[in-house]
Amino acid sequence: MSKDEAQLALNKKPYEVVAARNDTYSHATIEVVQYTGYNNNSAEESYWLYFLNGKLDRWERADGKRTPII
């Protein structure tokens, strides 16, 4: 899934790019995008989506106590 497809599936724009890196050894581009919204209980939830060379690689719940590991 591309970044555009993820945005369409989530029906919202990303909140921000929280990390990005170009790996010179593997020539890979890694980008972590944060999506923030509200769940059914009106509590704010944030998720980090990890894109490797523009394709969704994995996702996880955002943790305010640390930064994404890339």
Results as ranks from 00 to 15, higher is better:
Met1Ser: 02
Met1Ile: 02
Met1Val: 02
Ser2Ala: 08
Lys3Trp: 03
Lys3Ser: 01
Lys3Met: 14
Lys3Gln: 13
Lys3Val: 07
Lys3Asn: 01
Lys3Pro: 02
Asp4Trp: 05
Glu5Ala: 14
Glu5Ile: 11
Glu5Pro: 04
Ala6Met: 15
Ala6Asn: 09
Ala6Arg: 05
Ala6Asp: 08
Gln7Ile: 08
Gln7Val: 03
Leu8Met: 09
Leu8Tyr: 04
Leu8Pro: 01
Leu8Gly: 00
Ala9Ser: 09
Leu10Gly: 03
Asn11Phe: 14
Lys12Ile: 08
Lys13Thr: 11
Lys13Val: 09
Pro14Asp: 08
Pro14Met: 09
Tyr15Arg: 13
Glu16Phe: 08
Val17Cys: 03
Val17Trp: 04
Val17Arg: 03
Val17Ala: 05
Val18Tyr: 04
Val18Thr: 10
Ala19Cys: 02
Ala20Thr: 12
Asp23Pro: 03
Asp23His: 06
Asp23Phe: 11
Thr24Val: 13
Thr24Met: 13
Tyr25Lys: 15
Tyr25Ala: 15
Tyr25Glu: 15
Tyr25Asp: 15
Ser26Ile: 10
Ser26Met: 11
Ser26Lys: 06
His27Arg: 07
His27Leu: 15
Ala28Thr: 13
Thr29Leu: 12
Thr29Val: 14
Ile30Glu: 14
Ile30Tyr: 15
Ile30Gln: 13
Ile30Phe: 12
Glu31Met: 12
Glu31Trp: 08
Glu31Gln: 13
Val32Asp: 08
Val33Arg: 08
Val33Glu: 11
Gln34His: 06
Tyr35Asp: 12
Tyr35Trp: 14
Tyr35His: 07
Thr36Leu: 05
Thr36Glu: 11
Thr36Asn: 05
Thr36Met: 11
Gly37Phe: 10
Gly37Ala: 12
Tyr38Val: 10
Asn39Asp: 15
Asn39Met: 10
Asn40Phe: 10
Asn41Phe: 07
Asn41Cys: 01
Ser42Lys: 04
Ser42Ile: 04
Ala43Gly: 04
Glu44Leu: 11
Glu44Cys: 05
Glu44Val: 14
Glu45Ser: 01
Ser46Gly: 06
Ser46Asn: 03
Tyr47Gly: 01
Tyr47Val: 04
Tyr47Ser: 04
Trp48Ala: 09
Trp48Ile: 12
Leu49Met: 03
Leu49Gly: 00
Tyr50Gln: 01
Tyr50Cys: 02
Tyr50Val: 02
Phe51Glu: 01
Leu52Gly: 03
Leu52Asn: 07
Leu52Gln: 09
Asn53Glu: 07
Gly54Gln: 07
Lys55Asp: 12
Trp59Pro: 00
Glu60Cys: 03
Glu60Pro: 03
Glu60Asn: 05
Arg61Cys: 00
Arg61Pro: 00
Arg61His: 01
Arg61Ser: 00
Arg61Gly: 00
Ala62Thr: 06
Ala62Phe: 08
Ala62Lys: 03
Asp63Glu: 13
Gly64Pro: 02
Lys65Leu: 14
Arg66Ser: 15
Thr67Pro: 02
Thr67Ser: 09
Thr67Gln: 12
Thr67Asp: 11
Thr67Tyr: 08
Pro68Cys: 10
Pro68Val: 09
Pro68Thr: 07
Pro68Gln: 09
Pro68Ser: 07
Ile69Leu: 11
Ile69Val: 11
Ile69Tyr: 07
Ile70Thr: 02
Ile70Gly: 00
Ile70His: 00
Ile70Asn: 01
